[in-house]
Design a protein around this nucleic acid. Sequence first.
RNA 1: GUGGCUGUAGCUCAGUUGGUUAGAGCGCCAGACUGUGGCUCUGGAUGUCGAGGGUUCGAGUCCCUUCAGCCACCCCA
Length: 449
Amino acid sequence: MTADDPERIEPRTLKGFRDYLPGQMIPRERIIDTARRVYRSYGFAPIDTPALEHLDVLTGKGGGETEKQLYKFQDAGGRWVGMRFDLTVPLARFAAQHLAELGTPFKRYHIATVWRGENVQRGRYREFMQADFDTIGTLSTAADVETALVIHDLFLALGFSEFTIRVNNRQVLTGLLQRLDLAGKAVEILRAIDKLGKMGPEKVQAEIVEVAGATADQAARVLSMVSLKGENGEVLRQLDGLVEGSETGQQGVSRLRDLLAAAIAAGVPKERIRLDVSIARGLDYYTGTIYETFLTALPGIGSVCSGGRYDNLAALFTSQQLPGVGASLGLDRLLAAMEELSMLPKSATPADVFIPFFDATRLHDYLRLAASLRQAGLGVELYPDPKKLGQQLSYADRRGFRFAVIVGGDEFAGGTCQLKDLADRSTATVSIAESVRPLVEEIRRRKSA
RNA sequence: GUGGCUGUAGCUCAGUUGGUUAGAGCGCCAGACUGUGGCUCUGGAUGUCGAGGGUUCGAGUCCCUUCAGCCACCCCA
């Protein structure tokens, strides 16, 4: 093939779809591992579902926005199929289909790729990964609390200390709207409220009047509630007054009060979990607690972990009432955030130890050494060509290896090796005559130091 | 889907009113240094100027289309 070969195909990826190089994939896998570990530590069990579903499963009763973003096509057999655009709808189908054998309460996590044909932006792609966890089959506030605790543990485990889980409860707003006779326009009003951070109160109020047909006075009252600021306890007290006379509203406030108290009792610092009456979440199926997680250093990127409680997950598929609560970690958005915050290590190798192929006649010895280090649990890469040592070390340095174990003629003769710490350029002579154990211990010691 | 900005070497960019063989820095490869990587010096390779079409004697430079990226709307992870 030549450069002007007309048959040559340009290598490229679809808009919004990306390749992941080792430098990106290593931290990505680390986030996945962390999420998995935290979810499992609470007893959430892994599941998976197909990427493709029957189209009607995904579209359900039809919803404007998601339907527009849905990737759909006819398969070879003429069936209409769609690619999942979130993990909640597949969970609903899954629950309706298998819950009889699983029983409730059922806690699952699901880390998988989803697809949305929407316009791309920083941290927003057409193919991205979500890491969901949900507890279904219970109405208990305990599950709501646990959801917040999982989010909290997760972000700590990921290396964040500056973040805020904002919580709210749909029932509070619903209660207020009932009192204002605006209950029928809840969806439009919620959507307007969701824009509060971006547009400011005046425009939101105008939108409520315009889109929901509310009077200026009604809109002002919605705004006054949604604009409540201050300590969690203070806001709760004010909400008590605002929802007075609405059973739903009172229940919402009461659940928020319980949730916050329990989360703080469980060790979440109060600055990391805040009642924020303005968060509403676009999705209409949330009926109770709502969660959004913001990074203090990067509020502009939006929520990196969102979720909430729903009354009836699988109404579309079964008459069985399935309440639940859960949240979704936006892995790719989070990764974009971490990259921007320089939280990603630059290493492009998953291994700790580099062994230069130094003495061209000793391949077998190098292979043996590498094997015994691996057996001790270390990741080891042996360079494939006996090039000059400087070049090999330069390669190791670029890749981000931490250690080089150098063994040449002198070392073979003396039964030793040189352990070189690429980070601080120091070297130490370690005996490997009897066993590699001293070497392994030295590496471990330096790693944890 | 709508609107704005951008697209030149692996990366960041320069490229004069359209004018012959398209440049820099960084990176990469090699050597100086036949057993030790971040410095220095020397040499070297690399471009369908995002793609396609048009205007022109002549286009990286102008026009149209298209693709991709960034930003806003929208929505959301």
